[in-house]
Write a protein that binds this DNA or RNA. Structure first.
Length: 478
DNA sequence: AGTATCTTTGG
DNA sequence: CAAAGATAC
């Protein structure tokens, strides 16, 4: 018998069982703790499940289409792909584990009550089958339970909470994307169940209302970092004052990227920290990131945030039911330019400047005495950054029923707010072109222009003094 | 992260 | 009497 050559053949280990990386609100490759864990274990299956139990607004669906496309592309660049399934999360995961022989499932945490329930159910079901299920720090600076009062209770007020967060020092340093990841092949029985991004039918068809969104946004991790880098390099300077002016491009525009986890709060924190300038502008910007974390924490500790007044005395609030007024607010036809500009910016771009969000929310809940949940529902359907925590948190803040809320009597006057924060009327003229030719002195109160008042712009749908008095009377009745 | 109204101040 | 300050909602 002929002898084989003396060199040893490279030993091929039997294929290791794959680990499923379940992507949810963390659609990125960098600073992704669960993905790093999966890659370190062996072959990875990158999975996204489009689950109808987690309904999305129209603008979020539009974003998700781009986000999944970008993630699949980014995975393709490292030799992988995104496996997409549609339907119930528990059933799909359970089936996929059986088909692939996966030895583990990993994910980054989410903090909403339904999401936590689903994740806990899945973890229990997998463990019962002897399959490892491991959750990782999600998209916050710190996990909610890491920030507690001396008594061990949740903070209810932002400022002491934020002080405690700052005393904790730096959040976890961002992880790089895993290198030399191996990806598990798709078994043929699984291939039949996987769907492509277009199959999810996330984009609007007739009418196609997404033109303004396409013009404004590029979903995905690469675009998130381009925006973060340019913001930190060029725009943080002057942020504290310019951020209040909606006509200025002074805000970071990172909110939808955070919503979908194209960038993590930890990455933002460290990018700002790396500039070494601990000035008022960076402190102001980081505290805005802090408000996002505080909203997530509030949802974790008060799971009813999205549906129930955190101050229960508001349960007796005599909200008005006025569908015509709600429609006028939604359509940007209230007769108050700063309100209408904001609502049209929202409809057109899927986003609204923060200052204007507060003004339109105050107007709906106070002057129109409309339940904040109606406003939150509209925002959830139209914002690309709609978030299960931030959206209701901020509505409860404005309406006065949140824990650390604006006092109910803080009622924004849309005319004086417009004059203060859009003094030259630039923002209003951009979004409400039918009044663009009004002189500055009438730009926030067109009805005072008399004969110069343009036709085709509605008169105010509610009297400011009357609406304010009615809101204060309703509040006093509680 | 406010507004309206009243009081005081300073020219 | 306009502007700044104080106070209640």
């Amino acid at each position: 018998m002929m002898m084989l050559p003396a060199h040893r053949k490279t030993v091929t280990l039997p294929d290791r069982a794959p680990t499923i990386m379940w992507f949810r609100d963390d659609l990125r490759l960098m600073d992704n703790p669960a993905l790093c864990d999966a890659a370190a274990r062996g072959p990875v299956i990158c999975l996204y499940i489009h689950d109808p139990a987690f309904p999305l607004g129209g603008a979020e669906k539009w974003w998700l289409h781009g986000a999944l496309t970008a993630l699949d592309h980014d995975l393709g660049a490292c030799g992988g792909r995104l496996w997409i399934m549609a339907g119930d999360s528990r059933e799909n995961l359970s089936w996929l584990v059986g088909q692939t022989g996966a030895e583990g499932v990993v994910w980054n945490r989410r903090y909403g009550p339904h999401a936590r329930q689903v994740d806990a159910d899945i973890k229990a079901a997998l463990k019962a089958r002897g399959i490892d299920a491991c959750s990782h720090p999600g998209n916050m600076l710190h996990e909610p339970w890491q920030v507690r009062t001396k008594q061990g209770t949740p903070f209810r007020v932002f400022t002491p909470w934020w002080r405690a967060v700052q005393a904790m020092g730096a959040p976890l340093p961002p992880l790089p994307a895993p290198v030399r990841t191996t990806f598990a092949p798709v078994p043929s029985a699984v291939a039949d169940r996987l769907v492509a991004v277009p199959d999810l039918a996330l984009l609007p068809v007739r009418p196609d209302w997404a033109g303004g969104l396409r013009g404004q946004w590029q979903p995905g991790e690469a675009a998130a970092h381009a925006r973060l880098d340019s913001f930190v390099a060029e725009q943080v300077h002057g942020y504290a004052t310019r951020r209040e002016l909606p006509a200025q491009p002074a805000t970071s525009g990172l909110s939808p990227y955070l919503r979908f986890g194209h960038v993590s709060a930890r990455q933002i924190w460290h990018a700002v920290d790396a500039t070494g300038q601990g000035d008022q502008d960076t402190a102001c910007f980081l505290s805005e990131v802090g408000w996002r974390d505080f909203a997530q924490s509030t949802l974790f500790d008060f799971p009813d945030l999205g549906t129930t007044n955190l101050r229960s005395e508001f349960n007796g609030m005599p909200w008005r039911h006025d569908p015509a007024a709600l429609r006028a607010w939604q359509a940007g036809k209230t007769g108050y330019p700063i309100i209408d500009a904001g609502m049209r910016e929202l409809w057109h771009t899927g986003w609204m400047h923060n200052r204007v969000r507060m003004i339109v929310a105050s107007f709906l809940t106070k002057h129109l005495l409309t339940d904040w949940r109606a406003g939150a529902a509209w925002f959830a359907d139209t914002l690309v950054d709609a978030d299960a925590a931030s959206n209701p948190f901020n509505w409860q803040w404005v309406a006065g029923c949140g824990l650390d809320a604006a006092p109910y009597f803080r009622i924004f006057n849309p005319v004086s707010q417009g004059e203060k924060f859009d003094p030259a009327g630039e923002y209003v003229r951009k979004w409400v072109p039918e009044i663009a030719r009004l002189p500055d002195k009438y730009i926030h109160a067109p009805w005072k222009a008399g004969s110069v008042a343009p036709a085709g712009y509605p008169p105010p749908i509610v009297d400011l003094a009357g609406g304010r008095a009615r809101a204060l009377a309703a509040w006093k009745s509680l």
